[in-house]
Amino acid sequence: MIKIENVNKYFYKGEDRELHALKNINLSIEKGEYSIEKGEYSLLTGPSGCGKTTLLNVIGALDSFDSGKIYFEDRELGALSEDEKTTIRLNEIGFVFQAYNLVPVLNVEENIGFIMRLRGFPDSEIRERVKEVAAILEIDTKLRSLPSTLSGGQQQRVAVARAVAAKPKIILADEPTANLDSKNSKALMDMMRSLNVTENISIVFASHDKDVLESVDRVIKLNDGEIIES
């Protein structure tokens, strides 16, 4: 599904403080490669500053890269315009961020259905799907609540539900448990795994959380912008 070939990325290129953030990254994230029956469930890990978030952003068409090629299915990301990348992010990728990042003026139901609505799903389908996902993530009693009235764990579950609801091909989750206590982290990871199995969605985490490390099928270790184990 995603193929990365010799990708390099620099920060502050040409300046004294130039940083080679990603070094000759070669990686393949294929549905069913690590499990025949479900999507990939992988973790990008490594010490702080090793490049895991940068790699996740590059994979998610959020960030650019300086050399190499990234294929999202048959499309080469480097050759796409900003609008085309936005369309890929909207239609094919789900994002879960460390800080939940919900829309404060929308209630839980509207936040979960946000991407589906942007993609033009019919109202009835959105309502049904929101209820279904909310039930899996155990937030179905909070559908009318505003994000500000929810706990951190509940907000992160809403963020996951938003990413999952529109059935993306892949979910990229950057430190999804960083703001949660261990109980909520465990509960969230159990739910993510359940979605990975029931919804057949590939999920790639960037994290150095032990709970995440223990639950994934594949661990990709990075150090100083290089993959040292895959």
Binding site: G60, L62, E82, D83, T86, T87, R89, L90, N91, I93, G94, F95, F97, N101, V103, P104, F114, I115, L118, R162, A163
Partner: peptide, 16 residues
């Protein structure tokens, strides 16, 4: 600004 950043990240176009 962060909210708009998130919206752009999850696929809301600049036009919208």
């Amino acid at each position: 600004i962060r909210e708009f950043g998130i919206m752009r990240s999850i696929g809301l176009s600049y036009k919208l």
